[in-house]
């Protein structure tokens, strides 16, 4: 697993050697601050959970930018030749890449707790809900990062990777609405089961759902695995 660490470290460094890492984190924090200001100050409310609910949709827009270059860049610059001819398994490569992208998202989300910490001086925010939102965002976001990394492995174009991930992200966000329009009960059930939102919503109410956590972790595992398969399959093309 030393390989995972090496790859992850390099990727993180690369995020913060280029503006991408900073821009993603800064943009998210600026949006957090902006919305926090709108709701808290102008609304004179300490109901912070609503802030985090909206924050979450901002995160979903930034994730495609974080993950877009993850695998596609390697393919374009042929640096994948260094990775794939080193004594490293494809799973280690995929995992390292995923963890690095997730780390950027993690940094942004964690710094997003600052408004709540500030609020803590003046009022007592509902920490249960805040932490629930935080954990839910990390889990949901982690799943989206894994999907984004996988989509990035399908193309050498960062733009296509970003747009593809964004489309999937939006599709998943509104998948619940589909259920009402599907007449087939079994299909409707399936779509409902896939819904990321339903699971995420439990967290926003300040509850920790083990089954939801397991679901998101499984999605991450599945897409890291698929990314690894994708790397392997390129050898056979």
């Amino acid at each position: 697993m030393g390989n995972v660490k090496a790859i992850c470290k390099r990727e993180i460094r690369s995020y913060f050697n280029s503006p991408i890492g900073y821009v993603c984190v800064a943009a998210l924090l600026a949006l957090y601050g902006y919305y926090y200001y709108l709701v808290m100050r102008m609304g004179s409310s300490s109901y912070i959970s609503s802030v985090y609910g909206v924050m979450f949709s901002f995160s979903m827009m930034v994730i495609p930018i974080i993950t877009m270059r993850s695998m596609s860049d390697d393919q374009k610059n042929k640096t994948d030749q260094a990775l794939l001819t080193a004594p490293v398994g494809v799973t280690a490569i995929a995992l390292g890449k995923f963890l690095a992208s997730f780390f950027v998202f993690f940094v942004a989300s964690t710094l997003g707790l600052l408004p709540a910490a500030v609020l803590n001086f003046f009022a007592s925010p509902a920490w249960g809900e805040v932490m629930g939102n935080y954990l839910g965002t990390l889990l949901y976001g982690g799943a989206m990062v894994a999907i984004g990394v996988f989509i990035s492995s399908l193309t050498i174009s960062q733009i296509i990777a970003a747009i593809g991930t964004f489309a999937v992200s939006v599709f998943l966000m509104y998948i619940d609405m589909l259920t009402s329009s599907i007449s087939n009960a079994a299909l409707s059930k399936l779509v409902e089961w896939v819904s990321f939102n339903n699971r995420y919503n439990t967290f926003t109410q300040g509850m920790f759902s083990i089954s939801a956590a397991v679901f998101f972790l499984s999605v991450m595992a599945v897409f890291v695995f698929l990314t690894a398969r994708r790397l392997e399959s390129r050898r056979w093309s």
Binding site: R13, S14, S18, N77, T79, D80
Partner: peptide
Amino acid sequence: LPEQPPLYLDM
């Protein structure tokens, strides 16, 4: 050493 050296230009 592949035909195009697999270098990370940002390092």
